[in-house]
């Protein structure tokens, strides 16, 4: 949730820098829309972490993630936008809702939906946001990246080439990380049944799963 907020902020910051170079006082329609969507996304992200209603928080998260996808679209990064919707809205939030339903999230406010660590969390969030904004602003400064030029930056083809030519190594390292998580999950879920239960019970449990 923090990441969402900071992402927007940093993106807005870049845009502001860009707009500065190309006339800050006469923003184009796309830039205005970008800013408005960014505000909505930020608002949704804030509501996500502050609301006391668990399922509402998940649904506000959908709005925040969807807003982020729209921002990607406005930056002509179509592929990333759809993958964002597919993975985060379509799978992660569904998993989240699944968990909430399974634990019978009540309708209305949850009295214990508050953490004693909220001030620490806020501190971490602000620090992370500041770091990201600073890094992005410092990296690009006033560089102008044309969105609708001859070579669009965000198409599937360009994304694929960048990902699998220039950044293959980090990409593969990430996939190894995911594989490790997968194997860990398998090990965790098998260990107990293998040690304690009889084979019949185990197979039944396997069927239930």
């Amino acid at each position: 949730m923090t990441g969402t907020g900071t992402g927007t902020v940093s993106a807005t910051a870049t845009l502001a820098a860009n707009a500065d170079a190309h006339g800050f006082l006469s923003p184009t329609g796309v830039e205005i829309v970008f800013l408005l969507v960014g505000l909505v996304t930020l608002g949704a992200a804030v509501v996500t972490v502050t609301t006391r209603q668990l399922v509402h928080a998940a649904l506000w998260l959908v709005v925040a993630l969807g807003g982020l996808a729209v921002e990607y679209l406005l930056l002509t990064a179509e592929f990333i936008a759809w993958v964002q919707v597919l993975i985060y809205v379509g799978s992660v939030v569904v998993l989240l809702l699944f968990g909430l339903m399974l634990t019978k999230a009540p309708i209305g406010r949850s009295p214990d939906a508050d953490s004693g660590n909220r001030w620490a969390a806020l501190g971490v969030a602000v620090a992370a946001a500041a770091a990201l904004v600073w890094v992005v602003a410092d990296a690009f400064r006033t560089t102008w990246i044309g969105l609708d030029g001859d070579a669009p930056q965000g198409t599937t083809k360009v994304s694929g080439e960048i990902l699998f030519r220039h950044w293959v190594l980090p990409f593969e390292a990430l996939s190894v990380l995911l594989l490790a998580a997968l194997v860990g999950a398998v090990v965790l879920s098998r260990k107990k049944s293998a040690a304690k239960q009889s084979p019949v019970k185990k197979s039944r449990e396997g069927a239930q799963r």
């Binding site: 959908v62 179509e78 592929f79 759809w82 993958v83 919707v85 597919l86 809205v89 379509g90 799978s91 939030v93 569904v94 809702l97």
Partner: peptide, 12 residues
Amino acid sequence: FFVLAVMGVGVL
């Protein structure tokens, strides 16, 4: 990706 992503949203 568009089609599959948006179809997944419908289940929400």
